[in-house]
Write a protein that binds this DNA or RNA. Structure first.
Lengths: 358, 358
DNA sequence: GAAAATTTGATGTACGTAAATCAGAAAATT
DNA sequence: AATTTTCTGATTTACGTACATCAAATTTTC
């Protein structure tokens, strides 16, 4: 049997109350006694039963998720996943609130972070914008020992506990590798459509993409980056202009959102060479375009995984327990037409039998 | 606050004992009363607190994992992941035992399944072999209401509760799609190296691969399948012979194990056209070969995810609660040189602070 | 309508931990 | 040495559920 607090008490030759004081960092224990208890814990290999502790405390984990607003499909999907997690709250003892702030607006994000801090939550997850003010706001949270997880876009230089998102440099490199190989012998320049260089994920993708294109496929020149602000209308305009100006464009890498606009521009195009298109994030629009052959490959990050991972990590940090590193690594999905997952899930043989438990 | 058993009792106008009898399917409750209670449960939206229930029962989940023996790197990695899960047993209330049986041997597998059944575990996970005897053995387990999850290779036609593995038809299709595009304009036939057509995952990969090659890339003929029994030595011999017999081979798809042999054969080769190689499962051998450019792409299933998913699903089935479908879908990882994950993990800012909890 | 059988209620203990109270022991201070 | 302060022990209640026991009420059976 797994040792309990009683076993520690016996092993250390102290009372249960003292063990409890040590375990929960309560005052009123002499240094020597504290040490005796800690050694006993170490010796008999005690691990606190988090389930029992949470039961005793009737603990809930109040978490705040801060997401960009706007009609970015990916971000709305992310929000839907957070709402799904809210639906699981009773079982998971979480109390999640969602705060949305205008995209690419550091001031608004700082305000939201400070507001979240005022509610003393058990943890905060945030889609970060790279800016010194935001770093400072995150570090203020950490200063109050509130765990912080960055979501989708990281915040280098901050004291955030964890990043729940993909390796965006690798994503960019992979996109370039696929682009180069898919283009095969064909020649022609490659265009890049981004959202904004303000967010780290977009910058990193571009860095990775440029590096591999220059190293391995120098025959394809990179055109100046189009910044579409993740806005479909703007993206459509920019891509349309680019295609008109350079009909010999052989490839387009869309590393941000606003793919609806990209797809519209591609559909409007009638002349010119075939274009190899690689885009990010699987949405209803990109999925349809992939099936139609307008897009050749989609790199995707699974928003559901990111949200669930963020919650697991925030819980673990709040409880001071270790996380399974490999489980929390968010992978880059590469979708071709051939490995698109079905829209709806569930391939189990039967429904659970409610109430049965043994 | 979330409703408890007391709230059901009050809402249904019965005693706690009666609620308990209904909830735990104990005898001694009249039909009308049972219905009253069940309606109250429905009405107030009661969900049993599994953590508290497990505490009260001091429940452990005895699970049996049945894996093929032999020096197949992927399977040994899978076993390592199960052992890692055993290391987490105290926290997860599991008691996992591992049984290994000779690969591709239905009789041995049936014996192992029946033996497992004799111990009345809370669940069984098994790397299945497609055979009527195995189906029958699995259905015997289900007959005793023991949840069964197939791992890596599925068992169609059986009553298994769930399959923790990838969509192997999609994997084969994806491999073909990559192969066709990577080959670009080049011509030449494509060879396929499999383990055994006895296991469903290999058959499905081949089906998917053949389908897309025939549909989309009819210029590349498919050579007869090489069955290497997942044995490196045999694989090396078969591939060596094939390359010698057809120096014009343009691509090789290795859909099973024994990639050490494939790589050795590729290294030995000095003449002939460049070969595009797509293999399955990221191991130290395939990883090195990908980095060296001997392999062009690796399709991978994450053994750790599969094991953790299997455990989550077995627990859920044993408790009669629902699973998060999307979370349990195992995805096909596509690795190019550019998105290889690091060998070791951990990109968190700091270690957990042991003992702290609030 | 009485006896037997069944159903229901009341109550207590347990699981492992948290948290509070109060009394007593040991230190530190005067 | 007496007093104050600090530490430690003993004990209790609670969290939500499981499970057992025994008494009381209800239904069924003859």
């Amino acid at each position: 049997m797994r040792p309990t607090v009683h076993d520690i008490a016996a092993a250390a030759g102290v009372s249960l109350a003292t063990v409890d004081r040590v375990l929960n960092r309560r005052p009123g224990v002499r240094g020597v006694t504290r040490e005796k208890v800690e050694q006993a814990i170490e010796r008999i290999g005690y691990i606190r039963d988090v389930a029992a502790a949470n039961l005793a405390k009737s603990r809930v984990y109040p978490f705040v998720f801060i997401l960009p607003s706007g009609d970015n499909s990916f971000m709305r999907g992310l929000e839907a996943q957070v709402r799904a997690a809210i639906g699981r709250s009773p079982a998971e003892r979480t109390a999640i609130s969602i705060v949305t702030v205008p995209a690419f607006n550091p001031e608004a994000l700082v305000a939201a972070l400070d507001e979240a801090r005022a509610t003393s939550p058990s943890g905060v997850a945030v889609v970060a914008i790279d800016s010194p003010d935001v770093i400072a706001a995150v570090d203020r949270l950490r200063g109050e020992r509130i765990p912080v997880v960055t979501l989708v876009s990281d915040l280098a230089g901050s004291k955030r506990d964890h990043f729940a998102g993909v390796d965006n440099i690798a994503a960019g490199r992979t996109a370039a590798s696929l682009m180069g190989r898919f283009l095969g012998g064909r020649s022609g320049p490659v265009a890049v459509l981004a959202g904004s260089m303000l967010v780290r994920d977009h910058r990193e993708r571009l860095d990775g993409f440029s590096a591999v294109m220059n190293e391995s496929f120098p025959g394809h020149a990179l055109l100046p980056v189009l910044e579409g602000q993740d806005d479909p209308a703007l993206a459509e305009q920019l891509v349309g202009e680019a295609l008109a100006a350079s009909p010999e464009i052989a490839g387009i890498y869309s590393l941000g959102a606003g793919n609806r606009g990209l797809i519209a521009a591609l559909k409007r195009r009638r002349n010119g060479v075939p274009v190899c298109v690689i885009a990010h994030e699987l949405t209803q629009h990109t999925r349809a375009a992939l099936n139609d052959g307008l897009i050749d490959a989609i790199l995707n990050q699974d928003a559901g995984h990111e949200v669930r991972s963020a919650i697991r990590v925030l819980k673990a940090k709040a409880d001071g327990v270790a996380v399974i590193g490999a489980q929390e690594r968010i992978r880059i999905d590469i979708f071709l037409k051939d490995n698109l997952p079905f829209e709806r899930d569930g391939h189990d043989n039967q429904e659970p039998e409610p109430g049965r438990q043994d």
